[in-house]
Design a protein around this nucleic acid. Structure first.
Lengths: 147, 147
DNA sequence: AGCGATTATATCGTGCACGATATAATCGAG
DNA sequence: CTCGATTATATCGTGCACGATATAATCGCT
């Protein structure tokens, strides 16, 4: 990124920045997660479940701005690796509820260590990070098709 | 994004925000680019070439924080669609220089129209956008393995 | 109660993304 | 000047991402 000559239009510029910064962040996480056999999408999915277990596929999809067609195979891989269980909901048979196994829950402490260094690495202050997240959330809300 | 309950750790939070906001931005662009038969990675690649033609594969890879193994097939598709040419450099036969065809250059004006609405859609001021891009670039620099 | 519309998840095909590896061109130490 | 090291691009395999579509469950209108 350091020597990138940004294109003239601001719209391209911020999209370009989100796009290429994401690649760099993903690679930084990957070097930490690869030893655990996790990808970042798998990791962030587990993070949501550590925060609140028993979510439906649809709830996870909204949180990650993903579609079921991406999430279903990802969740199947995590199930195959023993981190979680997929079970049709009793109240509504269309829904599938995801619950962590003990193996899935146990990863949480390891992940905490891994994650700890990611803030420092940014070189940003907490205020700058909060502002960054706020701007990203605003963009996400305004570009979402619903509403 | 609007009803996302962000996980406890700030590192997860900003990565989550970049990750899921990227999906939303990508979809917003996709609805504009699909009629042209372009994906966003293809579009941003063309943008770099409109800004400066004749770049090497490696120069484009650095700008987009991508690897050659991603870029090579993408460039081959753009070549197959008649937007650009791939030619081994005369000075250094290892390098491949990318040059726009007239068809590739002609897309620029259409793309400008498409892009024009993406700033307004963010709902952010220019200062906020500049701050956002600045923070993202800082993160990119600090998380890059080189240096 | 009955059936068309909606909703939740899943399947399929294409393109992106990267680690590992291959290949060929250039560089550099002796 | 020669051969091992480095550099630029490409190939391969796996997983992510999405549009289009399928399927089955629930909803809602009459």
């Amino acid at each position: 990124m350091s020597d990138v000559k940004l294109p003239e239009q601001t719209a391209d510029m911020y999209c370009h920045a989100i796009y290429s910064t994401w690649h760099i962040v993903n690679r930084a996480y990957k070097s930490q997660l690869a030893p655990l056999g996790l990808t970042y999408p798998q990791y962030i999915t587990l993070t949501l479940l550590w925060d609140k277990d028993g979510r439906t596929v649809g709830e996870i999809a909204v949180s990650l701005a993903m579609e079921s067609n991406t999430l279903t195979p990802l969740l199947k891989r995590l199930e195959a690796d023993g981190y979680l269980l997929r079970k049709r909901s009793a109240e509504d048979e269309r829904q599938v509820r995801i619950s962590l196994t003990p193996k899935g829950k146990s990863l949480r402490s390891k992940a905490r260590e891994i994650t700890a260094c990611m803030i420092e690495a940014t070189g940003l202050t907490e205020d700058q990070l909060n502002s960054l997240v706020g701007s990203l959330k605003t963009i996400g809300q305004n570009l979402s098709p619903d509403r």
